[in-house]
Design a protein around this nucleic acid. Structure first.
Lengths: 269, 269
DNA sequence: GCAAATTTGTTCGTATGTATT
DNA sequence: CAATACATACGAACAAATTTG
């Protein structure tokens, strides 16, 4: 007698979903049908549905019905890379190669550039005083038309003053900023640290990623890149919805991957 | 006029929370008070509360009230490590060092050992045929008494047959399995790949991590370790609640971290 | 193209149960 | 034991989105 009725209904439905009796993409019985099947009120049935929707197992569409969630083919980003060439995963050239290797189509929003005072957080990561000016380059990415990530890079204003003026131009830096900084200022990226967290999206993010009924969490990846003197030269913050993104880190000597992640079918990358 | 009333109430409360007018740990007005303040029914107020609870901003406690979520001090695991010594982050010695460096207390459940047929997923990662036998070592970890992670490692049965019999004993392997396998079989771990995903917890996990009202997502980290011939020697699956865990990954030459991640105060590690 | 039917979304009222103080 | 506060459940009405005839 432990569980409330709506949980029992939810558990029953969940079992049917996970056992495969109900396949992804297919429609659940309507609320009225479930109301009869379980001899409960519509509100109680709706509580059960809400529970499962929160777990991401089902999605409701007004006017249509409730459907088993179809897992989007996850995109896998390899975050480890060669720091010396500046080819970290999820960025510039490497990133594009990774997308096209998966035979998927990448589109970019135009780069948006701003100059701001560093927040406490960014200042700490760049190891500069709070409220120092930083150049901020923001970009949004789509894979196969679906919103995939929002990325903002912060550079100390110092770099611009020393000659890297393209940083504050709202245009793509063709060769990538890592290469650009090496060419112009002789600053080499010697390594980077990625810091991964998961949190709820804010309003802007929920809107961009199109979480309509929503409740999908997002990854927030802080990448701090260091030059040869171990001084931070850049902080890049990227957010990705957790429902369509996965990450890989390689350490030491590993063979190329040849198989798919948890849950979904085959995917060659 | 766009948004329903419960969203407006939620947004209003959210703003008060995020602006700092309501501090973490403090109590929200009761449902009845909110009902009067917003001239709405109790059910509508509850919908607003539910919305915020799903975002993880607040928590309700029966008989007590609704409280602003206090962020648990996140534990940061460094996943990169030295693959040659077998010192990958989140495992054995390194892991314990990391915990005590943060001045926090680690406890372990006893190791639980089973022999199973490999699932499709595990078989694929170990690159062995499906339904081949694997040895499975399972362990649960607590930091400062709070459930922190559940870890299961899968080893090909082949290793046991070749002499690594301790793998199937339900006891700690003192020197760590990486060292043990090198000592007994001369198998060296040359590298590993970490594959990170986020998903909803299953019933067992929700129970262990004590998600009572729940809805916290969990990380699932698949680590495939390879020997010198790039043959998979082990797959370790670890799940962590996203609300109290973060990961770091270092590439190339980077200085030690000296500051805290997003959101919370200072933390030295 | 429009109207009707279907299906989920929002809001209210009410009653009772359960946990905590 | 009583008071307080959230949790569950039912019923009802109307709104909004979508599909169907």
């Amino acid at each position: 007698m432990a569980n409330p009725m709506y949980r029992q209904i939810a558990d029953d439905l969940r079992e049917q979903i996970e056992s495969g009796a109900l396949v992804p993409g297919s429609q659940l019985p309507t609320e009225l049908e479930l109301r009869e099947r379980y001899s409960a009120s519509r509100n109680t049935v709706r509580d059960a549905i809400k529970w499962l929707a929160n777990l991401g197992l089902i999605q409701t569409r007004p006017g249509q019905g409730t459907f088993i969630t179809e897992l989007k083919t996850p995109f896998v980003t390899t975050l480890s890379g060669d720091p010396l060439t500046g080819l970290g995963g999820g960025e510039g050239g490497t990133f594009k190669a990774e997308v096209s290797a998966a035979r998927r189509l990448l589109t970019n929003s135009p780069v948006q550039v701003e100059i701001q005072n560093a927040t406490r957080e960014i200042a700490a990561r760049l190891r500069i005083p709070e409220n120092t000016e930083v150049v901020l380059r923001h970009e949004r990415r789509f894979i196969d038309g679906t919103p995939y990530s929002m990325q903002t890079s912060y550079y100390p204003m110092d770099l611009v003053i020393r000659g890297a003026e393209d940083l504050q131009k709202a245009a793509d830096i063709e060769q990538g900023t890592v290469t650009y900084l090496r060419e112009v200022l002789g600053i080499t990226q010697a390594g980077y640290r990625d810091w991964i967290t998961v949190r709820a999206p804010n309003a802007t993010e929920a809107d961009f990623f199109n979480f309509s009924p929503d409740r999908v969490a997002i990854y927030e990846v802080f990448r701090t890149a260091f030059d040869g003197n171990q001084i931070p030269m850049r902080v890049t913050v990227t957010v990705y919805p957790t429902d369509r993104n996965q990450f890989i880190f390689n350490v030491g000597s590993v063979p190329p991957p040849h198989n798919a992640p948890a849950g979904d079918g085959d995917q060659d990358i």
